[in-house]
């Protein structure tokens, strides 16, 4: 993965890289595609792992 290959890496002022992924939502499982939420403000929080706390 490099910029030369056109891979979109997150940077401020640039479009957020889109993705689709599995998610646990309100007791169930579903696919979430980030771009489905464009039009709203979005906050994404990455963290190292479940069952850890900082």
């Amino acid at each position: 993965m490099s910029c030369e290959e056109g891979v979109n890496i997150a940077r401020v002022g640039k479009k957020a890289p889109d993705f689709e992924t599995n998610a646990f939502v309100e007791g169930g499982f579903q696919k979430i595609r980030l771009s489905d939420y464009f039009g709203k403000w979005i906050v994404i929080c990455f963290y190292p792992g479940d069952f850890t706390f900082v």
Binding site: A10, V12, G13, K14, S35, G39, I42, V43, F46, V54
Partner: peptide
């Protein structure tokens, strides 16, 4: 370590990252 480190992104309604 095979994990995602603690990162937080604010994305505006145009899909533009405004803060990380």
């Amino acid at each position: 370590n095979g994990v995602n480190i603690r990162g937080r992104f604010i994305i505006d309604p145009d899909g533009i990252i405004q803060a990380m």
